[in-house]
Design a protein around this nucleic acid. Structure first.
Lengths: 144, 144
DNA sequence: AGCCGTCGTAACAATTAATGTTGCGACAGC
DNA sequence: GCTGTCGCAACATTAATTGTTACGACGGCT
């Protein structure tokens, strides 16, 4: 389905910054992260900009500018990242409103809405169980 | 995120056929369903074609052609529909492979893969708890 | 046998979302 | 001032979905 890698890239960036800071550096630049993620710095800046709105990272400007974590990786969950970075709902409704004169056409949207809400809630709970610290640990555990 | 209404439309179609059959009709045409869903008949045929592959519906050709359920709505879950209709995974990886020379770039994909698999499994369980009979009931319960 | 309505499918267009790219001003330390 | 990086806007590219048109295949009917 989704041509949507925002959550993956955002997790990548956070793990990268976290590791880099543990190696003694103050800030990471969007260009460094972009190189690691094999994408464009602006893409990273956009994404980190949303994470900043959510209070997960900070940015500094001027010389020696760059990005740093606003809190510890242990205190961030994938749910925090997901909510910061994913705009809409998981499943979409019809793109044009169905025939309201038809019983099914009329009732289908509220019905699916209710069902989808329950499912998304479960998804959130799952995402909330994974911290970015978990992610970084898994990253470092990968066989070389 | 997803500009993806396939699951919604497929559920719509199944509920429509199910209700229509309960009203005594043998088969439903793609045009009738398309009218209710406010879309093009070909879109419906494509979708129902996938549901047929999965054994959820049947089609007849010739005069009096159309679609009918291959089993009862009680025995179909949203998971059946989801698997029939959704191609890829919920969350995507990077579109270009990250820098394998970087520790994070190297470990991020296996790490996220593992995490995502667990989450998708939970999603499946949730989808499996909702039958199309539930959906139709909710549809009919909508206030007019 | 011929007619008719509907499926089956391919080909293509239109729409939309995400991603990539370029450019340039703003900022802040040197 | 000079430098490196962010901030942001504008635009291009890519990819996926959805919509549309067209036409052959089918199969019951008269």
């Amino acid at each position: 389905m989704s041509a949507n890698s925002r959550l993956t890239i955002a997790a990548h960036a956070l793990a990268w910054i976290g590791l880099y800071q543990r190696q003694g550096h103050e800030v990471a630049t969007s260009e460094q992260i972009a190189t690691s993620a094999n994408t464009n710095p602006v893409v990273i800046r956009r994404l980190l900009g949303e994470l900043r709105k959510a209070g997960l990272v900070q940015s500094r400007r001027g010389v020696g500018a760059g990005w740093s974590l606003a809190r510890e990786l242990e205190s961030m969950t994938l749910l925090d990242v997901y909510e910061a970075v994913e705009p809409g709902p998981l499943f979409a409704m019809h793109r044009t409103t169905p025939d309201q004169g038809c019983v099914v056409g009329h009732g289908i949207q509220p019905a699916m809405q209710g069902i989808y809400e329950g499912i998304e809630e479960t998804l959130r709970q799952e995402l909330a169980r994974v911290t970015l610290e978990n992610v970084l640990r898994d990253v470092l555990a990968a066989p070389r």
